[in-house]
């Protein structure tokens, strides 16, 4: 098999199934009673955690590609990005359907009144256009430059997602701080790359292409 075939027929399906792992694990927890005494709260947290983790993995794709020269990882970026959306969507669904049981008045007052929910909802809203425009067709329609600019929204969504987690916690902020540190590193890498490219661009007197 050619390299291309291996990516398409083996690697992609394998990563696809791997990314569904948390769903299978959740099903097992639910069936075995592993969700504990408050399964609704546990469900909420579980999918929120996985949404954030996938978001960080998606943001790690480009740094990995460039630092390790692993160009192949870029082939999985869209899939991981869509899985991020999938898990955050499940997180939101769990909140709306299980926690609030479609009590729209209560949900609305939560969004308006509670800062951590406001922040979480804004973060989710930012991810919606990214999921919608993730197809090749939308990429063409928007053009590379606009598409890329639009998809930088993911940085803001990531920051708000971590802030949402941090604000929710009562006293023990170690876990959200770990997420914040990883996100910070991934964003810092991008900032440094930008500065370096600008400097290189000036030296060459040719504007950099990205």
């Amino acid at each position: 098999m050619s390299r291309e075939k291996i990516i398409r027929r083996v690697a992609k399906p394998a990563v696809f199934v791997l990314c569904l792992g948390p769903v299978f694990w959740f099903a097992w927890l639910a069936v075995s009673g592993g969700l504990g005494a408050n399964p609704i709260e546990a469900t909420n947290r579980y999918f929120g955690d996985w949404g954030l983790r996938f978001l960080l993995v998606a943001l790690a794709v480009t740094p990995l590609r460039e630092m390790l020269g692993l160009s192949v990882v870029a082939r999985f970026r869209r899939m991981i990005g869509l899985y991020t959306f999938f898990y955050i969507f499940l997180h939101l669904t769990s909140y709306v359907a299980l926690d609030q049981f479609f009590d729209l008045a209560a949900i609305w007052s939560d969004i308006v009144k509670r800062n951590f929910i406001t922040v979480g909802m804004i973060s989710f809203a930012m991810l919606v256009p990214l999921a919608v425009t993730s197809t090749k067709g939308w990429m063409k329609r928007l053009g590379g430059k606009v598409w890329q600019r639009l998809h930088r929204l993911v940085y803001a969504a990531g920051i708000l997602g971590v802030v949402h987690f941090y604000m929710m916690v009562k006293a023990d902020v170690r876990e959200p701080l770990i997420y914040a540190a990883v996100l910070g590193a991934l964003l810092a890498w991008r900032i440094f790359r930008r500065i370096k490219r600008k400097a290189a661009g000036r030296r060459n007197a040719h504007p950099a292409n990205s």
Binding site: A27, A30, V31, G33, L35, G36, I40
Partner: peptide, 8 residues
Amino acid sequence: VGLAAGQL
């Protein structure tokens, strides 16, 4: 809801 929580 598919939360078939079993016994602990």
